[in-house]
Computed example of a mutant assay.
Amino acid sequence: MELRHLRYFVAVAEMGSLTDAAEHRLFTSQPSLSRQIRDLEDEVGAPLFIRSARGVELTSAGRAFLDHARVVLAQVDAAVEAARRAAQPSKPTLALGFLTGTEMTWLPKAMQVLRDDLPSIDVTVSSDYSADLADALARGRLDAAFLRQEIGYGLEYRVVHREPLVVLMPNDHRLAARERVRPEDFTGERLVGVTNKSPVLAGIIETYLEQAHISMLREHGVDNLAGAMSLVASTRGLSLMPAYATNLLPWSVVSRPIEGDGPSIDLVVGYNKTNASPVLKRFLARLDELVDEGRAGRD
């Protein structure tokens, strides 16, 4: 088994199509890709895909193999990145990532933790979707990131803040007159949901609606906060978002807390435990200060 077999397998699994993976991700011919996948299945000793006219789907063996294949490829990429950094040791660096929107609150706090080290290190900052941050951590492109607790990437996580979900609605919505939205108020309203690009948030929302026996009209799905606010304003739907969204709302959208035992979501600092960066170690050693900041924000 070679690395290319794993890369081909992951590409097909993510694209859901041999043809699309061959043409748009791997730039090889579809018959050649099919042979490589068959060779991999022969070596594994089990079928990894179910072929159909609509494309391919993972078998149970394929789903089990996918997580391990991703981890192996991520470790290879991380090893390459570590070697490149070691070959250019001019100045220590720390690459920080933030779930888009959270950097407004947490970047100043992270920089405060690093204040004693800042003169001697270069800090780079990026923002992205949570799952993409997790992938970048696994591949060694980021040292630490503020994100959701994504599974399947082999990362370590420390919770720094637990925040409630709030309800976003048009500023003239009938529920805007309430101080808090009751679970029964959701019934019959349109839901501006989130896509699988935010799997942790999507799962929390789905669990809450199911456990509270809330029935909503599910007409839209978005993969970012800006899209949620736009659809809330234009479709007069409701959206459940982490409370930090309140700081980013346009005039046309307002937020209200949920009455009772509403859903919440954790913001974590994630890192790859195989990352031997001394700057990362110093950052993690002072992580309790960030945890204290998060706790103070909840009190």
Rank of each mutant, 00 (worst) to 15 (best):
L240H: 05
L165W: 01
N247S: 14
H173V: 02
L168T: 01
R174N: 00
E206M: 11
R190Y: 09
L225W: 04
V232F: 08
L191Q: 11
M169V: 03
E210R: 15
L191S: 08
A212H: 10
V181W: 06
T246K: 08
A177F: 01
T187N: 15
L238C: 08
S198L: 15
R190I: 15
V253D: 02
V181A: 04
P183A: 08
G193A: 13
H213C: 07
K197Y: 04
A233T: 02
S198D: 12
S252F: 01
H220R: 11
A245R: 01
R180S: 03
M229D: 02
L240E: 02
P183D: 07
A212D: 02
N224C: 15
E184H: 09
N196I: 03
N247V: 02
W251R: 14
A233P: 10
I214H: 09
Y244M: 05
E206K: 14
N171F: 03
P199E: 03
V222R: 12
A212R: 15
V181M: 06
E189L: 09
P170M: 05
P164D: 08
P164E: 07
V194K: 02
G221C: 01
R180N: 00
S239T: 02
E219T: 15
S230H: 13
P199A: 09
E210F: 14
N224W: 05
E206G: 08
E184T: 04
D172T: 11
L249E: 04
A212I: 02
L209C: 10
R178N: 10
P183G: 08
L201F: 00
S255N: 09
A245G: 09
L248M: 15
E210K: 13
A202C: 03
L248F: 14
L175Y: 04
P242N: 09
A212Q: 15
L240K: 10
A243S: 13
R178D: 05
A177N: 02
T246Q: 11
E210Q: 12
M229P: 02
A176W: 01
H220Y: 15
A245M: 05
V167F: 06
V253R: 05
A177Y: 01
L231W: 05
A212M: 13
N224V: 06
L165R: 06
L209S: 10
L231F: 11
V194G: 04
A228T: 00
S255L: 04
S255G: 05
D185H: 14
P164N: 05
S215M: 10
D172A: 11
L249C: 05
G203L: 07
L168R: 01
N171T: 08
G227R: 11
S234T: 13
H220T: 12
G237D: 05
G221K: 11
L225Y: 06
L165P: 00
L238S: 11
R178G: 00
A202L: 12
V166L: 03
V222L: 13
S230R: 14
G193N: 14
N224K: 10
